[in-house]
């Protein structure tokens, strides 16, 4: 059984992000990268499947720059068997990434039985890659998955708005995009880190997996930090005589300025 887990490397949530000089992306020079937290659920799910199916092979795939391979090494230290890195700039759009992932899976020579991803990446929050990838591979896909059972067919629980659950029965192969709550990702272990050194990592160029800049659907041009929040307004309502007036003012502000009512 071949399991592919797609992982993205994202800036650590504690990193202060700023736009690059030309505004076409973020400045990546001093960013600390981590594995996208939702992808950890995907890696853990693959490892859980492998626990009951020792012959399963877990390949982690990442599209991104080579500078750091943190996410892939972490996944292998957690227990994944091998890795594929598609070398690319970090500013690809969702379509290019999905196409590159498909290309990498095709090129690996292994027929996928299961593809796991996180439900979204916490940097650009696009929530598109799993569905695009499934479409390109012509496979079923379920996203926001919080329950996973493999009894020949997959029984997947997915969370919907308002906290209710939908249950899907899906044929394999399928693309499953994992959400928090699905499992508790294990830590990599120190022996795992040592073993990961010896695990194979295949590297492809974007061109090797059939992606070029012509595939770009979204061009980034003007990254900006969100405007600083204006300071809050204070009104003095300690004097009972003034309270009526203050309430009126607040309602006016909520209506005209904040447009909240």
């Amino acid at each position: 059984m071949n399991i592919f887990v797609c992982v993205k490397q994202v800036p650590d949530t504690e990193t202060k992000v700023k736009p690059s000089g030309d505004g076409t992306f973020i400045d990546t020079t001093s960013i600390k990268w981590i594995m996208n937290p939702y992808d950890e659920f995907a890696v853990e799910q693959a490892l859980l499947v492998k626990q009951t199916n020792a012959s399963a092979n877990i390949t982690v795939v990442r599209v991104g720059s080579v500078k750091d391979t943190e996410a892939l090494r972490t996944a292998m230290a957690m227990g994944a068997d091998d890795a594929i890195l598609v070398q690319a700039d970090d500013n690809l759009d969702s379509y290019m990434i999905a196409k590159a992932l498909k290309g990498a899976i095709d090129k690996s020579g292994k027929k996928p039985d299961l593809i796991l991803t996180g439900k979204q990446a916490i940097d650009d929050d696009c929530l598109q890659v799993p569905q695009l990838l499934a479409q390109m591979l012509n496979l079923p896909s379920v996203s926001v998955v919080v329950g996973f059972e493999d009894g020949g067919k997959l029984k997947l629980k997915r969370e919907t708005e308002g906290g209710s659950l939908e249950i899907y029965e899906v044929d394999k192969p399928a693309v499953v995009a994992c959400n928090k709550g699905l499992n508790t990702p294990r830590y990599a272990s120190l022996p795992g880190i040592m073993k990961a050194k010896k695990k194979p990592m295949t590297e492809f160029k974007l061109a090797d997996v059939g992606v070029s800049d012509a595939d770009r659907r979204v061009k980034y041009s003007n990254f900006q930090l969100p405007p600083e929040k204006p300071p809050g307004k204070k009104m003095d309502a300690t004097d009972t005589a003034k309270q009526k007036d203050v309430v009126k003012q607040v309602v006016q502000l909520l209506r005209n300025e904040a447009k909240a009512i």
């Binding site: 972490t74 230290a77 830590y187 990599a188 120190l190 880190i193 040592m194 050194k197």
Partner: peptide, 13 residues
């Protein structure tokens, strides 16, 4: 690299 990874893991823990 391994030492950096060891440190990362310990920090995460």
């Amino acid at each position: 690299t391994e030492q950096k990874e060891i440190k990362e893991l310990a920090l995460k823990f």
